[in-house]
Design a protein around this nucleic acid. Sequence first.
DNA 1: AAATAATTTAATGCATGCATTGACAAACGC
DNA 2: GCGTTTGTCAATGCATGCATTAAATTATTT
Lengths: 222, 222
Amino acid sequence: MVSAKASRVDDAYARLKADILHARIPPGHVATEPEIALRMGMSRTPIRETLIRLEAEGLVELIPRRGARILPISASAMREIYDILTSLEPDAAARVALARHSAETLQPLHDATSDMEAALERGDLDAWAEADERFHRQLMALTGNRRLQQIVAQLNDQAHRARIITVRLREPPVRSTVEHRAILDALLAGDGPLTRTLFREHRERAAQELLAILENLRLTQL
Amino acid sequence: MVSAKASRVDDAYARLKADILHARIPPGHVATEPEIALRMGMSRTPIRETLIRLEAEGLVELIPRRGARILPISASAMREIYDILTSLEPDAAARVALARHSAETLQPLHDATSDMEAALERGDLDAWAEADERFHRQLMALTGNRRLQQIVAQLNDQAHRARIITVRLREPPVRSTVEHRAILDALLAGDGPLTRTLFREHRERAAQELLAILENLRLTQL
DNA sequence: AAATAATTTAATGCATGCATTGACAAACGC
DNA sequence: GCGTTTGTCAATGCATGCATTAAATTATTT
């Protein structure tokens, strides 16, 4: 056996988190510990620990005598998240560019970009979104900064549901895909400033589009 | 009574965190749950929950069968932290500048700066450090971005011990204090780009100095 | 009927018990 | 003497019990 034996907390954490991210539990939903424990077939203890972790990650809110509330998707939350990502990612990308990684090292980014292009042609938005997130994740991994990776991953998790919803309510992300290709080229060229600029514009546009949709839907809070 | 009744978890959390930040527990120290529970006069349960939270905050590492390890201070960790802060804070400061807050709103920053100057003249490094952290905290508060505030606060907590140590091992922070004044002026002038540039240089220099000292001391890991 | 009070219900916060399992040490074989 | 093996010990992971207390419900009063 390769993987370490999963503890119940590990299990509950993985399942609950997946349920939240895939919106299988509706945003805003409130559930009590005994309720979740029953559903997951374990006692309250591991559920409690799981909820504490999820709260620290910003996916759940623990309301004193009521239970755990799955955080809703709000435009204001998305604005906060995108403001932070717009600061972090372009800088990080610029550092990666300046590190002048080999083409092999950048291969995963290349793959992700190709996958985005292919998915877009097929009209497979789920695959597109997956490749998009993969690109961003791989790029952060190349910085070697663990804390940065964790923070960005956490923010992306928080924004995940909003992206799922909006990706189907907008024009096909042609532009976004093209931008990825341009960023990749800048990275390969080792052009830090260009990478930063492109990435920043990429994030700013994405934020604009997402927020426009959320606000149009009057999804101040979904 | 104004404050909510403190639960044991709240209490243990506050105490443990303070002990860690003030280095009353030496970095690298390992303690078991029963050990901490005994010292804090409560059962393992609230201690457990506290440790989970502290782990999520990056102050403690939970080692499977060994206990909780107070994370050591390493130069590499500080580099990670400062890289992130150097991305986040200057951008955030620029946004604050563009928001053109009134002088009253910026008063806390003014106070913090004055306090730094006064503390420096008195040679009171503790007071100086406190005012410095206050300046940065207040500035982030002005962005109104809760997530940003939380992330920056968390990173500052992680870096706190390193700052305490190094502040006494370097020349008096005259330069740093002057820079704060300049940043404040740029904020008052509503000059976003200038604020960003100044802040970035400020953080980069601070990072350089801190890392130089840590590495000189061969504190790869304290 | 609306507002208030009394009562019931149930979720949390915490303590405790116990099985499991890894860490450590002593005993053993080479 | 040093690497293995076995055995003991204790920390964790989890379940469970219970007091407390907020929320919900019902009863009561105006």
